[in-house]
Amino acid sequence: MNISHHFDDATLMAYASGSLPQGMALLVACHLHWCPHCRQRLAEAEAIGGALLAQIEPMSLKADALKSVMDRLDLEEEIPLPQIRPVQTATDLPAPLHHYLQTNLDHLPWKRLGYGVHHIDLNLKGPGATRLLKIAPGVSVPHHTHAGNELTLILRGSYTDEFGRFSAGDVADLDGEVKHQPIVDTDQDCICLIATDAPLKFTGLMGRLVQPFIGL
């Protein structure tokens, strides 16, 4: 995979500090799955957390805390947390998303939004929205701006906008006043995962598409 667009530092710091909404965290995990460059950068962002933990003003635990934990060590059976291994399946999805969807992109119940556009709402909790969007070749999404942060991960196909060409594995990490007009630039559908942290209304790429059609 030839990745040329990565996350903003601030996004990786938010992921490292655990402060991203669930959908954005899922999207970041998907790109990390594909991108050694961002994994290295994440290690740096996590090291900030390690340094901050080491220098925090400690807070005493209850007097019997050590004893009660030590007592539990003996009772501990190996109950490992479920680990989602990056198995190579027939899917072209990154493991975290595949784990969530349990199927591949071709077998999803896509809903039509408008001319050349289909979507699926992942219905994740927390602020913002997380959706899969499928845009047909040649379809251009109108100029739009973002309120809050909006992350887009290209899963299949590609599009071109003012910032360049985005193909599978690339992320667009946009916020605030950004204006762009993506157009699907091959004869293949462009499928992307989009996550926002805007709490109240849909904005950005999704908003422009979704609002006129479902009247949100």
Binding site: A10, M13, A14, A16, S17, G18, S19, L20, P21, I48, G49, L52, I56, P127, G148, N149, D175, G176, E177, D197, P199
Partner: peptide, 20 residues
């Protein structure tokens, strides 16, 4: 961000500064 787990938007609101 790290100690209080606040999102960028929450920090912007709390400090009264733009998200950017």
């Amino acid at each position: 961000s790290y100690y209080e787990g606040k999102s960028h938007s929450e920090i912007a609101d709390q400090l009264g500064i733009p998200l950017g």
